[in-house]
């Protein structure tokens, strides 16, 4: 029992790790989501840039997240571009998961019936307006479960940043166990925290299903 009270004593370390994990996660998925939408828009416009983007997305999909984090944190320093671990980690999260969001949306874009887009063209919408008001909302309603999965992958990927010295939740567990020699309770608490965040995300994503359901979008 006393081991558990030590974790309670050390709660400020755990909480600061939790805070950093939540903050990194939120900032990076917001950034990644916007980057993903932007990439989709550029893919939509076609041309050489779209071709390059496809290559970039496929590259990201064939790499472990940690390799990108290494590249930004260690690799770029060779070119004189030094970032602190949190900045490099955040940037890596945004770029990596941005590519995955773009791929999810692109997959759904390929099977979006063209009728609603033609109707918008016929009504005089500009391409950017069509993307924002007609295409994107439908894709988001259609890809909700996949986006939900991606959020959970993103949450878990934040733990890799412990390896490049970011003091997030997993690093906090390690710090607590190293100080007090209580690996079991420290990690059990942290794993339960990850579990709780995942459960909240899953609940939120499933609740977001009402938007699709109201519009007849389930099972499309």
């Amino acid at each position: 029992m006393s081991e558990w009270s030590i974790v309670w004593e050390a709660r400020s370390t755990i909480l600061s790790g939790l805070w950093l994990t939540c903050w990194l996660f939120t900032a990076s998925i917001l950034g990644a989501f916007m980057l993903g939408c932007l990439m989709l828009y550029l893919l939509e416009r076609g041309g050489a840039l779209a071709w390059l983007l496809r290559g970039f997305i496929n590259t990201m999909r064939a790499l472990p997240f940690l390799v990108l984090a290494y590249l930004l944190y260690y690799g770029l320093s060779q070119l004189g571009l030094r970032m602190n671990a949190v900045t490099a980690g955040l940037l890596a999260m945004i770029i990596y998961h941005g590519a995955y969001f773009a791929e999810i949306l692109r997959g759904s874009r390929l099977v979006l019936p063209p009728g609603s887009i033609e109707a918008a063209q016929a009504h005089g919408f500009m391409p950017g307006s069509i993307f924002l008001h007609i295409i994107l909302p439908q894709l988001l309603l259609r890809t909700r479960p996949l986006i939900g999965n991606q959020l959970i992958y993103a949450l878990k990927d934040t733990s890799f940043l412990a390896i490049i010295t970011v003091q997030e939740l997993t690093a906090a567990a390690n710090a607590v166990q190293a100080t007090y020699f209580i690996p079991m309770p420290a990690f059990v608490v942290v794993i339960l925290l990850y579990w709780a965040i995942t459960a909240c995300l899953e609940l939120a994503v499933s609740k977001a299903g009402i938007f699709g359901k109201a519009r007849g979008f389930e099972n499309v």
Partner: peptide
């Protein structure tokens, strides 16, 4: 324009 398949915006 009015289309055979309506093409309403479902969202």
């Amino acid at each position: 324009m009015v289309f055979q398949s309506f093409n309403l915006w479902p969202h």
